[in-house]
């Protein structure tokens, strides 16, 4: 729509070259990229309902949404990091670690255990951010390293064993997270509440605006006096906190913690962000996109169950989808040379 307005005002001074360079190709591509996630989701749902109409049953849809909630929460945090053109590979390790922490702390602190776990997650994220910005180390290396630390911490703290939550305590402090109201699983409410918070951060806060500036024009952000380093550290901390929340929910749902509990999460979480339409180059997309992305992942998972693809083989497919999603969404004008 903006395009039409521009063209109606020929004295806009948009040079012919600029228009030519950004002409039809990029505008139509822009629009395709914008709607691609919706088209994908819709087509997948259509395909799978053709294969098995039972998929569209409310009960089944709710089940699918419930199953994806934990992953979605992790992906929300990841979205912020990818939005500033970084990546957080520590998410699943942080989530695994927090399942252990929350299970261990629950007997002494009750709901405070969840809070402590989230703070610890944020601290790990902050550590990634500091390593990334202070030492100027690419975020994937920084988070890989911090993720390693988190993973090992989980192993050490748990003594490499699964820890169980006493059923009564779990029910008392965390029960609200996993119950059902009017047939709707509470995980869905929690995930939606977190989505609203994330959306508020993204759209309405100075921090959210700063993320956009850093994501789409970091040097201009610096030259406008933004504290870019601080913003980045906060972003990674936020991602760590969301990963920890995913961990808390996972632990509650499975009544215990294990240092490998979230092991299969990272790849689909990244896939959810990318197929949702937040490219690795950052600056566009956002948490609403990630909702769509997560739903796509959920539908893909369900279809693979229908098609009787074993769980351990699903990662093969997500790997392929990840590559395709990157290839489709990445803004190549921002990436001059790939090394």
């Amino acid at each position: 729509m903006t395009k039409d307005k521009i063209l109606q005002a020929p004295d806009m001074n948009v040079s012919a070259e600029e228009r030519a360079a950004g002409g039809r190709k990029s505008i139509s591509k822009e629009q395709v990229t914008k709607y691609l996630p919706y088209i994908t989701l819709f087509s997948l749902v259509a395909l799978i309902s053709l294969y098995d109409p039972a998929f569209l049953k409310l009960e089944n849809l709710l089940q699918t949404a419930q199953d994806i909630s934990t992953l979605f929460i992790m992906a929300l945090g990841m979205t912020f990091v990818i939005y500033i053109a970084g990546i957080d590979l520590s998410s699943q390790s942080v989530a695994s670690m927090t399942t252990v922490i929350v299970a261990l702390l629950l007997p002494s602190f009750g709901i405070g255990a969840a809070l402590a776990a989230v703070i610890i997650g944020a601290v790990f994220g902050m550590a990634s951010g500091l390593v990334h910005t202070r030492f100027k180390i690419a975020s994937f290396i920084a988070t890989l390293a911090v993720g390693g630390i988190a993973y090992a911490t989980g192993q050490v703290v748990s003594g490499q064993r699964s820890t169980y939550m006493p059923a009564d305590l779990r029910e008392q402090s965390m029960g609200w997270m996993v119950g059902n109201t009017a047939g709707i699983p509470h995980e869905i409410f929690v995930a939606l509440a977190l989505l609203l918070i994330a959306l508020f951060i993204e759209r309405r806060t100075v921090f959210g605006r700063s993320l956009k500036a850093v994501g789409s024009g970091e040097l201009a952000a610096v030259a406008s006096g933004l504290k870019v380093t601080k913003i980045k550290v906060m972003t990674f901390a936020l991602s760590g906190a969301f990963a920890a929340m995913a961990g808390v929910m996972l632990a509650t749902r499975l009544s215990g913690g294990s240092p490998t509990m979230a092991d299969q999460f990272l790849l689909p979480a990244i896939v959810a962000v990318l197929v949702g339409g937040t490219p690795l180059t950052g600056g566009v997309g956002g948490v609403l996109n990630t909702l769509i992305g997560a739903l796509i992942v959920a539908v893909i998972r369900t279809s693979m169950t229908y098609l009787e693809v074993p769980a351990e083989a699903q990662q093969i497919f997500f790997g392929v989808v990840l590559i395709a999603a990157i290839a489709l969404t990445i803004d190549r004008s921002k990436v001059k040379v790939v090394k």
Partner: peptide
């Protein structure tokens, strides 16, 4: 590169240097 953020709107660019004044 350093002046504007191309992917942000006119209003977002204008207030980038003093967002605290509008919040």
């Amino acid at each position: 590169i350093e002046g504007i953020v191309g992917g942000m709107s006119v209003v977002e660019n204008m207030t980038l240097a003093n967002m605290q004044d509008y919040s």
